[in-house]
Design a protein around this nucleic acid. Structure first.
Lengths: 257, 257
DNA sequence: AGTCTTATGTGCGCCAGCGCACATAGTGCA
DNA sequence: TGCACTATGTGCGCTGGCGCACATAAGACT
């Protein structure tokens, strides 16, 4: 866990905002225009670096984050330093549900799993809009259930499935949230996420490579055969995807790539 | 998994309602009087039998349930029949958060883990009160975060801890929600909850018995030394308890026994 | 080109938990 | 009292994942 507490700096570049508009995030995209008008002026586009800690376990959240092309892992770190990924958030969600739930903090840490951009919003702004009890409330409640489902399935997966199956699930979750099928992540870091040995990931990844499902070298993983990846994964991936589509249908959003 | 889909029958006995008042449930207890006045007339005291399925995965919830002295397990059942407990709900919570979250159903099944009583409320009544956006909303949001935390910690526990540690955690969760330190549950059923082999539970329980921590025989488990049980448990129990107390302080409720 | 660092491969021995098969002991019921 | 059933104990062999100790290879940096 070599992560910097580094301050997130706002990206001033307007061209960047054009490439990464707020509506690249599905939650933001699904808001009715009225809410967009109120909220969007306060969104700040920021760049997130790999490994960056967005929020620490137990510390009060100041901002919420809406990833566009970045991915954030919610990670629990045990007393002995071992860790386990609880859920993953990409452009389909947000980091910081504890703010509107009332807890202000969580027992898990939020870490950037894939570098990229996200919009951040000052916590109080979100709460203010949430307390209007309109579309945002209902959207975020539904998203909370998606998160709940994802966590539940993570628990199941951790109990019953092999490292190989979990790696498949993890890769699928990642490429679903990325603009292409290219994952930038070392086996060491994946092992940290899954809470398993690095060698275990090496074995599983080697097998997937031999099967022609992925190609990897030194931190670059390319998914070649997505269909086969799904076949080698456990049911957990599908369950979460299905439930997520049921709870958060794309009404206004452009379809996934 | 020998569970009956049995219809829950309302208990007409008034004396029962005196022994099990609604305020025996902490959520109901913490509501302001105004809300109690609106809600309580619609609560039905019902008796729950061991193994009874309160709600099936994927099926629309009709009622929400507020246990008084019963305990409900949220269980995910895999395609191959194997299962895993996701979270547990006693007089500290409710079953059916998916109703106000908007999903109307969950991917998990709710099963009675310990027979007893619960108040049930017709789903629409809960939603109506929730949509007043008052105390109930805030209370249930906080409870949702407790549930989230519990699920997250279950995931961690499944990843990293031994059967013995998990059994300790499970027993602690149970007796915290029961009127005494007497758990009625066979090792077979505990194994189903934890998603492990029955023999594994036998081993772990045998060890705890030899250590003088519990006493058990044929489905009756008595916790003798709670302190030692906590010591033999993993950190997961404490983390959830702590977070739960932080999020849901007892304002009006009587203290735990 | 050479060196350093980082990522990945590999080969141990070890143990927890699994699946199976069966033995034993409470408990209820005829 | 005896029988049947259910809950628990026990003993296999097997496998996946662990911890450790290295070997190798691919970039990165002079």
């Amino acid at each position: 866990m070599t992560t910097e507490p580094s301050a997130t700096q706002a990206a001033p570049d307007l061209k960047l905002a054009a490439i990464h508009p707020p509506i690249a995030n599905r939650l933001l995209c699904e808001l009715p225009d009225e809410v967009k008008l109120r909220l969007f002026p306060h969104l700040e586009l920021i760049e997130l670096k790999l490994g960056q800690v967005i929020s620490e376990a137990g510390s009060k959240l100041r901002y919420v984050y809406f990833p566009t092309d970045s991915i954030i892992s919610l990670l629990y770190v045990m007393e002995n330093g071992a860790s386990a990924e609880i859920a993953v958030v990409g452009n389909d969600g947000m980091v910081g549900v504890a703010l509107f739930m009332g807890g202000e903090s969580t027992t898990s840490r939020a870490v950037v799993q894939s570098a990229g951009f996200a919009y951040r919003l000052f916590g109080q702004r979100l709460k203010d809009e949430f307390n209007r009890h309109g579309a945002l409330l209902h959207l975020l409640l539904r998203y909370s259930q998606v998160l709940l489902t994802q966590m539940a399935q993570t628990a199941v997966c951790n109990r019953h499935h092999s490292i190989e199956q979990q790696l498949c699930r993890w890769l699928l979750l990642s490429i679903d949230r990325l603009p292409n099928d290219h994952v930038l992540m070392t086996q060491e870091l994946i092992a940290n996420m899954l809470g398993v040995r690095r060698e275990g990931v090496t074995d599983a990844a080697g097998k997937l490579q031999r099967l022609g499902i992925i190609n990897y070298s030194r931190g670059h993983i390319e998914v070649i055969d997505r269909a086969l990846l799904e076949k080698n994964s456990c049911e957990c991936y599908g369950v979460v995807l299905h439930e997520s589509e049921r709870l958060m249908p794309r009404n206004h959003c452009c379809k996934a790539r």
